[in-house]
C-alpha cells in the first residue's frame, strides 16, 4: 500500500484552508460514490505511463473526461467519454450553476484532477475553493493545497503506484 499523505510541504502560501491529504483507497471511494464526477485531465497525460492509468480510471467509472490542454489527443481512440475544453474556461463554467456540463446533463459534484502543471491547476482550484461549493480531489503528483483533498508530493514512480492502487479500488 502506498502512503500518499506524508509530504504535504507547500512552497507558496495560499492561506488558511489547505487540502486534506488523501490515500488512494479513499480517493477511489470518493470517485465511486460521486453522482456526477468530472475527470479533469491535462497535457501531461500524454506521458504513456499516466495515460495508461487515466484511461481505466475514466473507463471503470464511466465518468466524463474534461480533456484540457492538448490531452484530448490521448483519448481519441479510447473507450472513454472525453471532450476538449480550456481549463480556465472550465473554471469559469464550473462556477456557474446554470451550466449544464460538457454533456448537457447537468452540473458536477466532484472534480478530480490529474496530469496538470502544478502552478496552473492550483490557481484553478483556488477559484473553485473560494467561489463554488464543489468538492475537488487531486490525484496528481504534487500536493495541491487548493484542492479539497489531495495526494501529497510524490516521486514519479510512487505516483504511478498510487494510481494503480486507486484503480484497483474503483
Amino acid at each position: 500500500m502506498v502512503d500518499t499523505t506524508r509530504n504535504i510541504k507547500m512552497y507558496t502560501t495560499y492561506g488558511t484552508k489547505s487540502a486534506k491529504p488523501v490515500q488512494p483507497k479513499i480517493a477511489a471511494k470518493m470517485i465511486s460514490k460521486a453522482k456526477r464526477p468530472l475527470f479533469v485531465v491535462s497535457s501531461i497525460v500524454l506521458d504513456e505511463d499516466l495515460l495508461k492509468r487515466a484511461i481505466p480510471i475514466a473507463n471503470k467509472t464511466g465518468m466524463q473526461i474534461a480533456a484540457t490542454g492538448t490531452s484530448i489527443k490521448g483519448f481519441l481512440n479510447e473507450d472513454v467519454k472525453a471532450k476538449y475544453i480550456n481549463i480556465h474556461a472550465l473554471a469559469a463554467y464550473l462556477g456557474d450553476t446554470g451550466w449544464n456540463g460538457l454533456d448537457g446533463e447537468g452540473h458536477y459534484d466532484l472534480i478530480i484532477v490529474l496530469a496538470h502543471k502544478k502552478y496552473y491547476i492550483n490557481q484553478v482550484l483556488s477559484g473553485l475553493k473560494n467561489f463554488t461549493d464543489l468538492t475537488t480531489l487531486s490525484i496528481d503528483r504534487h500536493y495541491l493545497q487548493n484542492a479539497s483533498m489531495s495526494f501529497g508530493n510524490l516521486k514519479p514512480e510512487t505516483h504511478l503506484e498510487a494510481l494503480d492502487e486507486l484503480i484497483d479500488n474503483l
Binding site: 488558511t16 484552508k17 490557481q123 467561489f131
Partner: peptide, 11 residues
C-alpha cells in the same frame, strides 16, 4: 466577459 478570480492567498 465576467471576471474569474483565482486567488493566490485566502487572506
Amino acid at each position: 466577459y465576467e471576471p474569474v478570480y483565482t486567488p493566490m492567498c485566502d487572506q
